[in-house]
Design a protein around this nucleic acid. Structure first.
Length: 688
DNA sequence: TGCGGCACTTAGTACACGGTGA
DNA sequence: TCACCGTGTACTAAGTGCCGCA
């Protein structure tokens, strides 16, 4: 924890440094920017069109784009399974046109599809994220899917697994028993020791009891779920100990379900669905001090489900004897299935995978908006600095909040319903109690100390030196207020976003986070990558740049349970390697001495081979040490979130191309699928 | 302007799975 | 072959932001 606090504390240093560098980096790329700026503000579509044209030209020259054939094939054929995606994904890396064409042809024949149209499709069909977009909010013209997969029905406990109340065996009704098993499954978790969790669970459990059970069970503390808990643990062990064949059978069944329900057809493309399984019933696990933790998440039935598909598609069938709540044909939304959950009354959705056209396109758009912000961020900064002096309180508050959002990458901070969720805040919802002002601290003037719980109840702790005007404004905002009062009482996210919208089309508070994350990565990579380094050292640099962003965005994780042990293991390996190196060096020394005496070819060769051995061991040692540094620095920082949601993937891809690093070293298979649009698009010279 | 509903993105955690080394 | 461990994935909670209505 100390480490993360140090890291977070140092964040402002990083940011401050970042903003200085931002300016110099801008200079570096001014020529490129000038070119971009020639396009009038908000002209990203024109840019995209230009890019499209260029891409189309390239494509005709490229003869065939095999990744695309793979997609087309799998999409054209409902018989083609997901492995065909993999096959073609891998093929992209093999530059053997003939082999690929042959494979393509065989597959085409196998699936019995329209062979004669393929060549023209491959030559002229644009990539999926470059296809024409619909207007007026239309998201698709055709959508067909098989509906959701429901949670399996409750399987009652065997008669030898008993529940005890006040030390006596008690047979529960099936409904009450099911809810009891939810609690039993969580018995080892800290949740079940929490007062609120227990209270909510007990209250909801009673609703499921028969009147007889209700009259008997009056105290949760007298309930003994231990036999149930042991039973589930044993089941889990049994699953792990299953034979290979049994495991294989389960795998095959899961694969069959995936093939049947895991894909849909959207506008001639076969797309992977993200979460086609309905959430099973259980106990609600809110994060932080959630007032509703432990409440019963009820089982979702067909009658709760709204299905969305196109009129002219084959509609999904509900399980026999049941019916859907509604079948809708709304092509202005992207979801396939929705239902309302009973805890918060919010709507849950089944949507497409991040690799889908619809998600990829949105992702691309998000980064293009952030890049547009880059062009006008200095103007916006100048304006909010000016607004710190405004005569109007609401404008001053807006300007200070925007400064925090820009400088510290804080979230917007929508208002929340009190008592419905954990008490967490973002920028606009900060309260007086979340800030402490220090006129002077640690040799720095005007320091603001932030301490609050953000999204997911993750603590944000930071001490930031701010400009005098900001400091004075904060003093003014806090004057005559109670700790629990809003810091920005004349501001909310909708006011702020309305203002941002006036400054730049499509600008919201969220865009600043994307912009600052991506620009930080770009700057850090430019700065710390050494072209002379070997691959592991370059990857360490990349991870460090990624880490800088994760710290900026306050992406924390619980240290892995096995962290200390795994570090110890790694250290043991390092020690062993060091010993091995010392041995190898000794052997080299003696071989050299031997060669000096003998002066023959054989002993010279021996020296060479010992030299090589030393070199190899040194490299291995360096690799291990780099791994240890990386792991230690990553202990409480989650890199994944920023990588997936905030960093323009084109920056990373360009970096890989520029420094000869395989993209596989940076992005795993799923990430490469998600960022397929960027892999196609970014050349080695791309700059955010 | 405020509010609630809705759609969608962002987030951390648990656990299954598969690679690796003894 | 087996145990261990790290990585990838599934899951689902918790945010943001827009829209329509009063």
């Amino acid at each position: 924890m100390d480490q993360i606090i140090v890291a977070i504390r140092s964040r402002h240093v990083l940011l401050h440094f970042g903003s200085e560098h931002r300016d110099s980096s801008d200079k570096k790329h001014r020529d490129k920017d000038k070119e971009r700026l020639k396009l009038k503000d908000g002209s990203s579509d024109k840019q995209k069109d230009k890019h499209k044209e260029k891409k189309k030209e390239e494509r005709v020259g490229r003869v065939l784009c095999f990744s695309h054939i793979g997609t087309i094939l799998s999409e054209l054929s409902p018989l083609a399974d997901s492995s065909s995606f993999d096959l073609f994904g891998d093929m992209v890396q093999i530059n053997n046109v003939l082999v690929l064409a042959l494979c393509g042809a065989i597959l085409v024949a196998c699936v019995g599809m329209l062979v004669y149209i393929l060549p023209s499709l491959c030559f002229f069909m644009p990539f999926r994220w470059e296809e024409e977009r619909y207007t007026d909010g239309v998201k698709w013209k055709f959508l067909e899917h098989k509906g959701p997969v429901f949670a399996p029905p409750y399987d009652p406990l065997p008669s030898n697994v008993k529940f005890y109340y006040d030390g006596k065996h008690m047979k529960l009704s099936s409904t009450a028993e099911e809810v009891a098993t939810f609690f039993a499954k969580m018995l080892d978790h800290e949740y079940t020791t929490k007062e609120v969790f227990r209270k909510n669970f007990y209250k909801d459990w009673r609703k499921e009891m028969t009147s007889e059970e209700k009259s008997k069970i009056t105290d949760l503390n007298k309930c003994d779920f231990s036999e149930m808990s042991e039973y589930f643990k044993a089941q889990s062990e049994a699953r792990k100990a299953m034979t290979k064949e049994d495991k294989q059978k389960i795998k095959e069944e899961n694969e069959r379900i995936l093939q049947e329900y895991g894909f849909c057809i959207m506008d001639n493309h076969k797309e992977r669905i993200a979460n086609f399984r309905i959430e099973p019933p259980g106990l609600f696990r809110g994060r932080g001090d959630h007032p509703k933790m432990g409440m019963l998440k009820r089982r979702i039935r067909s009658e709760d489900i709204i299905v969305n598909c196109s009129k002219d598609s084959k509609h999904p069938k509900p399980p026999p004897g049941t019916k859907w709540k509604e079948v809708r044909h709304d092509n202005k939304v992207t979801w396939l299935v929705s239902w309302t959950e009973n805890i918060q009354g919010s709507i849950k959705y089944i949507m497409l995978n991040p690799s889908s056209r619809i998600k990829g396109e949105k992702d691309w758009q998000k980064y293009e908006t952030a890049r547009r912000l880059k062009k006008c961020v200095e103007r916006i900064r100048a304006q909010y600095r000016d607004d710190w002096k405004s005569k109007e309180m609401r404008i001053r508050q807006r300007a200070v909040a925007l400064y925090f959002i820009d400088k510290l990458a804080l979230r917007a901070g929508n208002e929340k319903e009190e008592g419905e969720t954990a008490d967490t805040v973002g920028c606009c919802s900060l309260r007086v109690e979340h800030l402490t002002l220090h006129q002077e601290m640690g040799g720095q003037e005007y320091v603001v100390e932030f301490d609050f719980l953000g999204k997911d109840s993750i603590r944000y702790y930071n001490k930031v030196p701010v400009e005098k005007r900001v400091f004075k404004n904060l003093q003014l905002f806090m004057e005559d207020k109670e700790p629990e009062d809003d810091l920005f009482d004349r501001l909310n996210t909708s006011i702020l976003n309305k203002h941002l919208q006036e400054l730049m089309d499509g600008l919201t508070a969220k865009v600043f986070r994307t912009y600052n994350a991506s620009i930080t990565l770009q700057q850090q990579l430019n700065e710390i990558t050494n072209s002379e380094d070997n691959v592991p050292a370059k990857i360490l640099s990349y991870n460090r740049a990624n880490r800088a962003v994760a710290i900026l965005c306050n992406h924390q994780r619980a240290p892995p349970k096995t962290f200390e042990k795994s570090m110890q293991n790694l250290q043991t390996k390092i020690d062993a390697k060091k010993e091995q190196l010392a041995d190898a060096k000794r052997e080299l020394k003696s071989a050299k001495a031997d060669a000096k005496v003998r002066r023959d070819e054989k002993s010279k060769k021996a020296v060479e081979s010992k030299k090589k051995a030393v070199q190899r061991i040194e490299e291995q040692l360096m690799k291990l040490e780099v791994q240890a540094t990386d792991r230690e620095e990553n202990k409480q920082i989650a890199l994944g979130t920023s990588k997936l949601n905030y960093l323009d993937p084109r920056i990373s891809i360009a970096w890989c191309k520029k420094f000869g690093i395989q993209i596989e070293k940076i992005y795993n298979k799923t990430q490469r699928e998600k960022f397929a649009w960027a892999i196609d698009m970014a050349g080695k010279d791309f700059q955010f």
